[in-house]
Structure formats: C-alpha cells, structure tokens
Design a protein around this nucleic acid. Sequence first.
DNA 1: TCACAAGTTGAAGTCAACTTTAAGTCAAGG
DNA 2: CCTTGACTTAAAGTTGACTTCAACTTGTGA
Lengths: 144, 144
Amino acid sequence: MTELTIGELSERSGIATSAIRYYEDRGLVRSRRTTGNQRRYERPVLRRLAFIRTAQRVGLSLEEIEDALATLPSNRTPTKADWSRLSRGWRPRLDAQIAQLERLRDTLDSCIGCGCLSLKRCNLSNPGDLVADRGPGPVFLEGR
Amino acid sequence: MTELTIGELSERSGIATSAIRYYEDRGLVRSRRTTGNQRRYERPVLRRLAFIRTAQRVGLSLEEIEDALATLPSNRTPTKADWSRLSRGWRPRLDAQIAQLERLRDTLDSCIGCGCLSLKRCNLSNPGDLVADRGPGPVFLEGR
DNA sequence: TCACAAGTTGAAGTCAACTTTAAGTCAAGG
DNA sequence: CCTTGACTTAAAGTTGACTTCAACTTGTGA
C-alpha cells in the first residue's frame, strides 16, 4: 500500500486519471511501471498534485507550474520548506489580481451612475467619442 | 460620417475587425449593408461594444452577454439608464470574485508557514492523507 | 480460471473566443 | 480609369487544459 495506482491517486487527489496522465506526459509528475506496464505512484506525488491544483487556482499556467517544479531538488523528496518557498511567490500575484478587480469595481461604481461605460467620457465629459488613440486592445475601463 | 465602416468601428473601439464580425455572426451587434455588401454601423454600436468588453472583464461569457443584451428594448436606442441597469448586476459578481481570491490568499498565508498545501492536514493535523471523500473536482484549498 | 473492473496507447475531439487564410469584390484618391 | 487599401465570405487554425474514443492488456476477487 505504499504505492498508488492511477485510480487511487485520482480518488485521493480529486484529479481525473486522464488529467494525471496528461500531467505525466508533460513531465509534471513521474511514475514507475509494473512489469505489466501500469503506472505506480509514490506518495509524495499527492503533494505535487496539490501544488499543481493550488497553483492553477492562483492563475498559473501549466507551463509556469512546470518551471516552478523544475526548481525543486531532484536528489531528494521535497520538504515542506521547499513547497513553502514556491508558494510564497504566489502572494504578490494574488494581491495584484485582487487589486485589479477592485479597481474595476470602483471604476464601475462611479460609471454606473451615468451608464456611459466609458472612462474617458465619464471623467472628461468628452463630447463625441474620441477613443482609441493608444494602440490596439481593449480601451474601456482598462486597469492601467 | 454618421455611419461607421467596420475599420472605423474597430479603430474607435479597439476591437479587431475579425472580432466584430464574429460578434455580428453571434448576433451581438447589427449592421446594415451598402449596395456593395459592406457593413455600416450606427454610432450606438460603439457603446454596445464598450458594454461587451467591460462585461468580459467582469468575467461574463459571450453567451451571458448575449442574454443581457437581449433584455434591452428593441424599439429604441438604449438609454444610459438601460446600460446602467445591466451593469449594476455586475457588482455582486465582482465582489464574489474578489472575496474568493481573498479567501484563497488568506488560506495560503496560513498554509505557507507549514508548506503542506492541504487544508485538511493544516487544520486538523490529519496524519496520513485522508482526502477526497467528497465527489470529484479539486479538493485542496477549495473556497467553499 | 475466468470475468470484468481498471489499466494502457495514440489520436482525435472539446470549449471559448477569436484569428488566419484564401480567393476574391468594393470604394476612393490621383 | 486604375491602383490600392479596405472590405467580403467560408473554412480552417489557434491556445490551453484536458476528455473521449477505440482497441487492446492487466490485475484481482470469487
């Protein structure tokens, strides 16, 4: 019972077997194979999956997660300090996301009154819609 | 100059012509055609596009935006009050998003110390990882 | 031993929201 | 009139993170 089949790992992590295989194809997790070519996972893989899932919730792509995991020591099982180091970097990212949403909310608050939906019109009472001087991309209510 | 070509509309809204055509295919905006089969847009379409872009930033899908736009009066150009009514509903949604991120951040804060990445282990000092009793889906650090 | 759940593979499908491409047609300034 | 940039279409491609499929092989409880 020290090793887990992909089904057991799936049940314990809440991640579909197809997703686990996909992660393995991408090199995010590893397994050994039985003589019959089935995957067997060591228990630390559970924590690795937890890391992946949580990182995704923070908004990281699998590619970024891959990079982060690559900085873990390869000669030993990662310690709590290792995981802690990695997840510490998420804090500013979360803060930034929150700040951006708050900006949007506040701008919206001041815009809803007039229903104009346009920062420039709102703030400058700009007659005639003179927008889009600055490059491509969304123009209205932009964060920066 | 009272009507806009798709290129002018694109420049003024900051939305690519291909995206505008796509919106039109989906029924989000409308145009009349010249004798030569080119699109011509009335100016209120600009506000409609602003609405779409902003709604997207709030996290609505085009389908939801479609539904919202469908509640606008069809017999007249929407007023500021109309737009105001629609965007008012975004506030709770934004608040919920912000709250969720804040929960994640705070949970993370208390978890980073131990590097365990698992709510259940953290809070209950649960020996052996007894997780995933509850259905499918992500289990770690889940908001609710 | 043998049925059958659980595992294996590569390839193709899915979803959303577009973008790109190809092969044209239209409009406007010189 | 003619060039050239802007426009037209349908269809296919893109991205990320998977899921589904088909056809097959393993592992296990009765």
